[in-house]
């Protein structure tokens, strides 16, 4: 491998890890706080992508400007879904919540397919395709912008969780539900907000992905799995853990993708199973702090 190749691989991993961090943070927050593994996370990503696509297509809105809209829409959707559906059976055995979110994924993806067809879409702007050249390493502007937005979102989330009253209540609820109740927290509402934030992050990731890759309604599934692997790798402990997981996973994906593209899933899942067999409960504890 030449130096330029290594440089390009490292840069690609960095660019990938930004978006993946946003994807995984939303997933990890919901899992860590409410103990729901949300298999519809990928579907939320796809909705985000279509929001950006739609706004760009109909009103020629710049895709970066549509991110807040896509986040707001998905926050509302996530809040409602948690409130109306997931909350109804949140204490049922695992299979129930797992299947419910699985069913939601299927429902959302197919509704999207119904309304938007299975055609592959992409959001093309004047600056799509342009790239910054750092010596032999190419850095597309869009990906650079996406990395910037990702960093901004991660910082905002971290600040919200640690500095705001609501953020503190969310973390406290994730650590000890009954103790949180004893301080006056309405747990059902906090859960719904948490789910909404998770969905909003998925929406942002979807908006970013719509500019980076061509997509169709099936875009999301692979990202749910990636988010899960990242959480296992990094642990659900806190924002930093998830970022570390995203970075580690991105390196593996980029390296495997450039060497053995045909077996990338098999290799990453093989790693996952091995990892879990050694540490059956994942790498780090559950609480999100």
């Amino acid at each position: 491998m030449s130096g330029a190749e290594v440089g390009q691989i490292a840069m690609n991993a960095l660019l990938l890890s930004g978006v993946l961090a946003v994807v995984a943070l939303g997933f990890a927050l919901v899992w860590g706080i409410t103990n729901i593994v949300n298999l519809a996370h990928g579907a939320f990503i796809v909705i985000g992508a279509y929001v950006t696509f739609g706004l760009h297509d109909f009103w020629s809105m710049d895709p970066f400007l549509s991110i807040p809209i896509s986040m707001a829409a998905l926050f509302a959707l996530g809040f409602l879904i948690q409130r109306a559906l997931i909350n109804q059976i949140i204490r049922a055995p695992l299979l129930a919540t797992f299947l419910l979110t699985f069913g939601l994924e299927s429902l959302i993806v197919n509704l999207l397919r119904f309304f938007f067809r299975a055609d592959t879409r992409s959001v093309m702007t004047a600056y799509s395709g342009a790239a910054l050249a750092l010596g032999p390493v190419r850095v597309p502007y869009i990906r650079l912008g996406a990395l910037g937005v990702s960093i901004l979102l991660v910082l905002l989330l971290a600040a919200f969780l640690t500095r705001s009253r609501l953020g503190r209540a969310i973390r406290a609820t994730g650590m000890d539900v009954d103790a949180a109740r004893l301080t006056g927290v309405k747990v059902a509402t906090v859960y719904a907000i948490t789910f909404g934030i998770g969905a909003a992050l998925a929406g942002a990731a979807g908006s970013l992905l719509s500019m980076i890759v061509p997509f169709d309604p099936n875009l999301g599934g692979g990202y749910t799995e990636r988010a899960f692997i990242i959480c296992v790798l990094g642990g659900l402990g806190n924002v930093v853990n998830v970022l570390a997981g995203a970075a580690a996973y991105s390196v593996v994906e980029v390296v495997v993708g450039s060497r053995l593209p045909a077996f990338s899933q098999a290799i990453t899942f093989g790693m996952l199973v091995l990892l879990l067999a050694v540490r059956p409960q994942g790498i780090a504890g559950k609480a999100f702090s």
Binding site: L100, F102, G103, L104, S106, L107, I108, V109, N110, R113
Partner: peptide, 10 residues
């Protein structure tokens, strides 16, 4: 069709 499957599951 698949949408109905999702609703059924739920």
């Amino acid at each position: 069709h698949p949408t109905v499957l999702g609703v059924l599951i739920i």
